Simulated assay, not measured.
Amino acid sequence: MAIKNILSLVVLVSILGVSVAIPYPSLDLNYYRSKCPDAEGIVRNVTLEHVGPQKSLAAALLRMYFHDCFVRGCDASLLLKSPNNDAERDAIPNLSVRGYEVVDAAKKKLEEECPGIVSCADVLALVARDAVLLIGGPWWSVPLGRRDGRISRKDEANLPSPFADIATLKKNFTDKGLSVKDLVVLSGAHTIGISTCGLVNLRIYNFTANGGPDPAMNPSYVGELKQRCKPNDFTTTVDMDPGSVAKFDTDYFKAVSQKKGLFISDSALLNDLQTSLYITTQLALGGRLSTFNQDFAESMVRLGNLDVLTGNNGEIRATCASVN
């Protein structure tokens, strides 16, 4: 079966399960209908070509989208390169971001079909959605019409930290106009993907004054991590959702409830009434995905509307790594 037909079938099945369209005045679900009618189809096919054989890219592309939207809004500023290495992608939290080639490939195809029409910001929004779909996540309708930013500054990449406590995380999200529910729901994206020992060694070695691990972690989990991460190892990879890293599901919330959250920011979700209640609710649902999928889809649409550029603001880049 052709790639396009395979993905069309996946999309149809997903729409029957979860389809979310949250209207925003500045964006339009049908923005490219007359300007580039096959825009979404082109992006889907390119995403499948890359993510199909390399499923780990789904988590990477979802992370890329989050990192872009949280700084200067969803304007593809993360994609810009700088000869002086002072753009967003050069900031420490973004050095491990990967998947740029997927966005670039989709943009190249779109420029061949509809030159100067589809923004890199919209391409990234669609790629993130389609990548999640390809690993069993929900479908959501993506409002379109974003334009690309011309500014990308390394010192502005103030992203939520994996070492943050719950008060800091709540402020990070509310400052962006996102809710506490969005915080816990989007944290659920850690059901897929990997990190490195460098971000967890602090928690398992010498966290306390007497050299012990973080008491907020399950001792058996600490033991498992120590088997993989030696004290001076900063590069070995570790799963963010132990035992379920390649599947978009609710096991992340089970892991957090068992004190097996990889990051301090994961464990911190147990320290707030609203976020901990959401986790408890997911556990009570017995792993059924319908509620979480619906919530995740809605939060992703809200994320995608952060400080978007529309109308005469910004530009439509010819290539995503540089301004026109």
Rank of each mutant, 00 (worst) to 15 (best):
residue 163 F to W: 12
residue 107 K to C: 04
residue 167 A to C: 05
residue 197 C to L: 11
residue 113 E to G: 00
residue 143 P to D: 11
residue 137 G to Q: 04
residue 169 L to M: 15
residue 114 C to W: 03
residue 137 G to V: 03
residue 221 Y to P: 08
residue 182 D to W: 13
residue 225 L to G: 02
residue 162 P to N: 11
residue 220 S to F: 11
residue 143 P to R: 12
residue 219 P to D: 13
residue 137 G to H: 03
residue 198 G to E: 04
residue 203 R to V: 00
residue 203 R to I: 00
residue 181 K to H: 11
residue 176 K to F: 05
residue 195 S to E: 13
residue 201 N to I: 13
residue 223 G to S: 15
residue 128 A to Y: 04
residue 191 T to C: 13
residue 158 N to I: 14
residue 183 L to H: 08
residue 157 A to N: 07
residue 116 G to V: 05
residue 201 N to H: 00
residue 126 L to G: 01
residue 199 L to T: 15
residue 137 G to C: 11
residue 118 V to P: 01
residue 123 V to C: 06
residue 108 K to P: 01
residue 217 M to K: 07
residue 188 G to H: 07
residue 117 I to S: 05
residue 123 V to K: 02
residue 169 L to T: 07
residue 208 T to F: 03
residue 133 L to D: 02
residue 152 S to V: 13
residue 140 W to P: 00
residue 165 D to C: 04
residue 119 S to R: 01
residue 214 D to T: 04
residue 180 V to N: 12
residue 173 F to L: 09
residue 178 L to M: 14
residue 226 K to N: 08
residue 172 N to T: 09
residue 203 R to D: 01
residue 154 K to M: 15
residue 203 R to A: 01
residue 186 L to E: 06
residue 166 I to K: 07
residue 220 S to C: 03
residue 110 L to G: 03
residue 194 I to W: 09
residue 135 I to S: 11
residue 227 Q to N: 15
residue 185 V to M: 08
residue 142 V to L: 06
residue 203 R to W: 00
residue 124 L to E: 10
residue 156 E to Y: 12
residue 140 W to S: 02
residue 216 A to T: 14
residue 206 N to Y: 08
residue 202 L to V: 06
residue 149 G to A: 05
residue 167 A to F: 07
residue 190 H to I: 02
residue 213 P to Q: 08
residue 228 R to H: 07
residue 209 A to N: 12
residue 129 R to A: 10
residue 129 R to S: 06
residue 122 D to A: 07
residue 216 A to H: 09
residue 138 P to D: 09
residue 160 P to H: 10
residue 163 F to I: 02
residue 205 Y to F: 14
residue 167 A to W: 04
residue 197 C to G: 08
residue 171 K to T: 13
residue 130 D to V: 02
residue 189 A to L: 15
residue 183 L to E: 05
residue 117 I to E: 11
residue 180 V to C: 06
residue 223 G to P: 12
residue 224 E to T: 12
residue 226 K to V: 05
residue 156 E to R: 14
residue 156 E to Q: 14
residue 152 S to A: 14
